[in-house]
Design a protein around this nucleic acid. Structure first.
Length: 601
DNA sequence: AGCACGCCGACT
DNA sequence: GTCGGCGTGCTC
């Protein structure tokens, strides 16, 4: 009888099972666990243990050496178990019966500049397509996909979840027909099974999908495109907290696939690390005028009025959803906070409620301050709903709609709203970050960015690049096909009124001086418990083990101290070899590590 | 996933 | 006291 250490998929622990058969590392087997059957990856053969072992039921798949290398990297780099890393991958169905190879031919003819970009991306293993909104990146992607298919390889087109909209699907299907599959979290189980089958059969050659599409069982992946590569939603916020954009580079290297990162505003760190091709201006050679203003004032309103008169459309970006971010007592200055989270609750007038944007706890709007009993409140910072209401009063004849997480709850609702906008049934669209993302937004005459200083001033080393990129992305929505105008509400016009290259030059110096990525890595280690003392003790044990190291930036209460009824403490690191420092001290039962964090709350 | 265990509030 | 709700931890 042989004994094997097996990492159960999606669990932190390994278990020992026995069998008469010989298995090797990477074999995926079915094993009994309590009264059900689960899957696990064989790690190695071990000595007969003290305890009783159950028998391995069957072998269903094997990860080859390349994939095991990737799984081990994910496990090591993101401080997760092999089972959690392997659990990310989708397994193929059993009967792979390959269809005959068919070549494709698209009708696309690249412009000389696009061809130059194509040639550049062709000759580099990993590179960035740094192209302005509307500069014609998609045609280049399609040509790269065409070439990949004709080499009888598969192409993966990654997009942020929110950007997976019908338009990109339509464009890809127009060129590659039934060879295209769309993959994201909202695709039904049945459709997912169908895609897995067709992928195994060799019928599907192009997958356009969200970050999880990276883990599909490709036969021979030849190309990975990461569009909107700057987008934070490539980072998973559940264990393992991987970044699909960074992993795409690893997959490319390990599986011998070309990697293209595309964006109008590439991350400073990526622009530093990888070669890029600059695709400037818009395809239609339009011009864009940029204005700055300190307040949401008459200038903005007169511009909106002007566009309404010309029957042209406006989009307004607001960093806050709901009505106002906070309800603050005029007397004692306390914000009304969520009872489960240390977070001020947001006002939702339509539901006559306060809502916590972190745990969704809802409570009625109080008449008196819960802290001091005073009856007078101040409302802090305007949100999407408040702006919509104010504009409706000012422009009663205009059609004004809201576009944020409260409205956009499903893909069909996004599609419907954007279709109406495209048909010019909506004059003004007011929205949050979502407005800046994706491809499906039609051309508008005026883009307005409100209150961006709120983003710029948030306490996080990425705040500057996020604010700059967001302003540029919202700007990009105007003037793609016709000349457009942009208004940015800020007290820092000089920060925004420059090219991305100028911003990059300053930012990279800033990061170098202060020692931030890409010159170092960062890691956040979190300790949380419903009992404050336990969370704190766990953190202190860890901090004491680390000792005095220059990589240890600080530790203490998390910026949101209480979340979903749990107290949170965190330890922050930056440095060149964080794994070497953290691994000897971390107890993964009580600590959650977040490598290359995008959120510091 | 499902089941046992234990902590804490409501009450025969 | 005890009953039971539910959050937490364990399953080789």
């Amino acid at each position: 009888m042989r004994y094997y250490e097996i990492a159960l998929l999606n669990t932190p622990n390994t278990f020992t099972y026995r069998s008469k058969n010989r298995y090797k590392k990477g074999d995926v087997v079915v094993v009994p666990l309590k009264n059900r059957e689960v899957q696990g990856v064989v790690l190695k053969e071990v000595e007969k243990p003290e305890f009783e072992c159950k028998d391995i039921i069957s072998k269903i798949y094997e990860f080859d050496e390349k994939y095991m290398k990737i799984i081990e990297f994910i496990s090591f780099y993101y401080f997760s178990s092999i089972g959690e890393a392997a659990g990310l991958f989708y397994l193929p169905p059993k009967l792979p019966k390959k269809e005959a190879f068919q070549s494709v031919k698209t009708q696309i003819v690249l412009t000389p500049k696009q061809q130059e970009a194509y040639d550049f991306l062709e000759k580099n293993e990993v590179s960035i397509l740094f192209g302005d909104t509307g500069s014609g990146k998609t045609e280049i992607y399609i040509k790269l996909i065409e070439k990949t298919i004709n080499e009888n390889k598969e192409a993966l087109f990654l997009l942020p979840e929110i950007a997976i909209t019908s338009q990109m699907e339509k464009r890809l299907k127009k060129h590659f027909g039934e060879n295209v599959a769309i993959w994201h979290s909202k695709v039904t189980k049945k459709t997912k099974e169908k895609i897995l089958n067709e992928l195994a059969e060799g019928k599907i050659k192009v997958v356009a999908g969200a970050r999880s599409a990276l883990f599909l069982p490709y036969n021979d992946l030849g190309l990975i495109i990461v569009d909107e590569e700057h987008d934070d939603s490539y980072k998973s916020e559940s264990t393992p907290k991987y970044n699909a954009k960074d992993l795409a580079v690893l997959f490319g290297k390990t599986l011998n696939a070309k990697v293209v990162l595309g964006s109008a505003t590439p991350l400073v760190s990526d622009l530093y690390k990888f070669p890029h091709f600059r695709l400037k201006g818009t395809y239609f050679n339009t011009t864009k005028k940029r204005y700055f203003t300190e307040h949401f004032d008459g200038f903005i309103l007169s511009k909106i009025e002007e566009k309404l008169k010309q029957k042209k459309q406006t989009i307004i970006f607001v960093p806050t959803r709901a009505h106002f971010k906070y309800m603050i007592c005029k007397n004692c200055g306390e914000a009304v906070k969520c009872k489960y989270c240390d977070v001020a609750m947001s006002i939702h007038k339509d539901k006559l409620a306060l809502k916590c944007h972190y745990c969704n706890f809802t409570s009625p709007i109080p008449n008196v301050c819960p802290s001091c009993g005073s009856e007078e409140f101040l409302n802090e910072r305007k949100g999407t709903s408040e702006i919509v209401e104010e504009l409706k009063e000012l422009f009663p004849d205009a059609v004004i709609e809201k576009f944020d997480r409260d409205i956009v709850t499903s893909k069909s609702r996004i599609d419907k709203l954007l279709k109406r906008f495209a048909n010019k049934e909506i004059d003004i669209l007011v929205g949050t970050q979502m407005l800046a993302k994706g491809h499906d937004y039609p051309d508008v005459a005026l883009s307005i960015v409100l209150d961006i200083d709120f983003l710029l001033n948030s306490a996080d080393y990425k705040a500057r690049e996020r604010a700059f990129a967001l302003a540029r992305q919202v700007e990009g929505r105007a003037g793609r096909k016709e000349d457009g105008e942009v208004i940015i509400q800020t007290l820092n016009p000089e920060f925004f009124d420059r090219s991305y290259e100028e911003f990059y030059k300053e930012e990279i110096e800033f990061r170098k001086d202060l020692g931030y990525p890409p010159f170092v890595r960062m890691c956040k280690v979190e300790f949380s418990d419903k009992k404050l003392e336990i969370a704190k003790e766990n953190m202190m044990r860890f901090v004491n083990c680390i000792g005095e190291k220059e990589e240890l930036m600080g530790y203490g209460e998390a910026p949101i101290f209480k979340l979903q009824n749990r107290y949170r403490f965190q330890v922050l690191f930056k440095g060149k070899n964080l794994h070497k420092i953290i691994y000897p001290c971390i107890d993964l039962k009580v600590a959650k590590a977040d490598m290359d964090p995008v959120s510091f709350i």
